[in-house]
Design a protein around this nucleic acid. Structure first.
Lengths: 363, 363
DNA sequence: GTTGGCACTCTCTCTTTTCGAGTGCTAATA
DNA sequence: TATTAGCACTCGAAAAGAGAGAGTGCCAAC
């Protein structure tokens, strides 16, 4: 059921204007500013029909029109134009992306912060879950009571930890364990590290002090942590910029939902894992009750190792979809270029050398 | 200039009540509920004097009394009673502290989250800056193009990173570098890693491929990062629970100040590093303009390695100082027990084995 | 199918009124 | 001298009322 070209134009104008001003849009205003060659009366007729069709609604009888979720949907699908950036803007965006990713690091926390800054809406970033294996195990003997475990995972990340023991170990034992773990624990997933395997390794190493289980425990912990999807939300407070969240209670509800982890994306994740397109969820299209009158825009990026990360923006249904979608697309593309396992490496190989450091603490 | 016992009692009652209700407190209400044996007229006289002395003020002529910052100060210093927890409450608090610190980890992010949850105010945590040195360097040869750097720092944390090279290295070189770094780079602080040192190490290792500088760069980065104070704010949105922040603009101002790093504590840090007491900064006592009408409560805890961490709570001047101070004290004590370099180790040595893992990524 | 005109509706804003909590003061009381 | 009861007064907050204006729907004309 398609609608006339003029209706589309009018609808687009209404949505654009409403996004800009957050005020219901009247026929007179459209006639004067939207540049469609007809009078306000004509537009009134069209508007009335658009209301009947469900694309618009009026807050009350004598107010302008406001888009319904269905209206936004139409706008997002067909009407809004892809925002093109000028050369300067591209430069500027790239600059920010670069500096941000350098001074902070490329963890999801900084990605989400960046997305929020760029769009001025709350943003959240998460990494997809992906099965992970151990590629290599090294044990570094420090002293009789101390050694360091270094694990290299299938995604080429390195995790390490210092272990301090109440009992003393000799260097031979450490070497033996190292060899055994490298042959027995590499290439397998977390759930393949069974008590049985641990037991047999322990026996083979002649380990009576429980070293094996300490190492195995760290392996399991590391794998599960590396494989688990992690989410990070930032810029919740930017919600308060939006007039629809001037009600502190409403704002608070959504903000605590977001801070509480915001499990908004998973349901859409399936859809997204392969698509490189930006997805929009408008108001009631969201599954979470807390988001029923908000909108979410999501983009996915190639995070390397056949993994995709997600960046999402949350805001009122009256969101600047066009701008947000463009920015997310840009950001996702930039991240993919940087992190992705794609063909051409980004300019400057040296960049790839300094990637990220680990953190580990013991005392 | 001390004031009469009765005045103190009345002041305490006013503050208590105002903290509870956020409404100006009237004489009649006090006479009926505060349990001081006199009539509302008497209290009116006393209140008038308390106003004259600067401890209270009235929003307008015919309203109840509200504490001034000076009034709060008096309350905090002399009047409020230390909140004692019942056995069950202690249990409950300990339980939460334990589970939280286990399921998440003991990073400052989770500490601040916990503090915020416990108090229902925004919280921030930060670690004190402390000069750091490298204790040990290991280089693990992976393949011709790849090796892993493992650094053990003076606080016994371990950081690691995978380096992927465009050129190939032989195992000998890696061993040579490892030895050189262990002799030349251990025990020195970040700023002692001079270009000169790097240059000479490079020459000694006969390294023409810039490996030395890659490793040195990582060392510098790691040290500066480990030594730098890090801050983490969480629960900003809980501000919206407070009636004084029902104005979205006001709330937004403070929230973005907090999110933006919230450099609230440093000035007080000096005072605190040694003290184990809880510090309170009331309204105008804060230096930051954004906090002039908010209060901050800070506690410090022993974070091990002769380092102290700080936990702080931010809220309106009408803050429940007593409850917040008690909770922070409890939390700080718990953290000190867990992380501190104190004498008796916490129950369960095994706990100390599994402390934290590192994270590192390359692709 | 489009347009100008016009009466009508409804919200928003501003002003006015009312209400009541809380005060300060005074005079009586212990 | 300290306390108390009583009372007139003040001032803000909430309720009620009055316009004003924006925007509509509909009708008749083009």
């Amino acid at each position: 059921m398609s609608i006339s070209e003029r209706k589309k134009k009018i609808l687009a104008a209404v949505v654009d204007e409403y996004i800009r001003t957050a005020e219901p849009v009247g026929s007179k205003h459209l006639a004067e500013n939207a540049g469609l060659g007809c009078s306000s009366a004509t537009i009134r007729n069209e508007l009335a029909e658009l209301v009947a069709l469900g694309y618009l609604e009026q807050p009350h009888t004598s107010a302008g029109r406001v888009p319904t979720p269905m209206g936004y949907r139409m706008y997002v699908n067909e009407l809004m134009q892809q925002q093109k950036y000028s050369l300067e803007e591209t430069e500027e965006l790239n600059r920010r992306l670069n500096t941000k990713l350098q001074e902070l690091d490329d963890t999801i926390s900084s990605i989400s912060r960046l997305a929020s800054q760029l769009t001025d809406y709350p943003a959240l970033a998460l990494t997809a879950a992906s099965p992970m294996t151990i590629k290599r195990v090294d044990l570094i003997y420090v002293d009789a009571n101390t050694f360091i475990i270094v694990l290299m995972l299938s995604n080429n990340s390195v995790k390490s930890k210092l272990v301090h023991l109440p009992v003393s170990v000799d260097q031979m034992m450490v070497q033996r364990l190292s060899a055994l773990f490298n042959s027995g624990f590499t290439g397998i997933t977390e759930d393949q590290i069974t008590p049985l395997l641990i037991r047999s390794t322990e026996r083979a190493a002649d380990d009576s002090m429980g070293l094996t289980s300490v190492i195995a425990a760290f392996a399991i912990e590391t794998l599960s942590e590396a494989a688990a999807p992690t989410a990070f939300v930032s810029g919740e407070n930017r919600l308060l910029n939006q007039p629809e969240f001037r009600d502190p209670d409403k704002a608070h509800r959504l903000m605590s939902y977001l801070s509480g982890g915001g499990y908004i994306l998973p349901p859409a994740e399936g859809d997204l894992t392969d698509s490189s397109e930006v997805r929009v969820l408008i108001g009631p299209e969201n599954i979470a009750e807390e988001l029923k009158d908000s909108s979410v825009v999501i983009a996915s990026y190639d995070a390397g190792d056949n993994t995709r990360g997600l960046i999402g923006i949350v805001g009122p249904t009256r969101m600047d979809y066009s701008a947000v979608a463009s920015k997310l697309r840009f950001l996702a593309a930039g991240l993919s270029r940087r992190l992705g396992s794609g063909d051409a490496p980004p300019e400057g190989m040296h960049n790839k050398l300094i990637i990220k450091k680990s953190e580990d603490r013991d005392k």
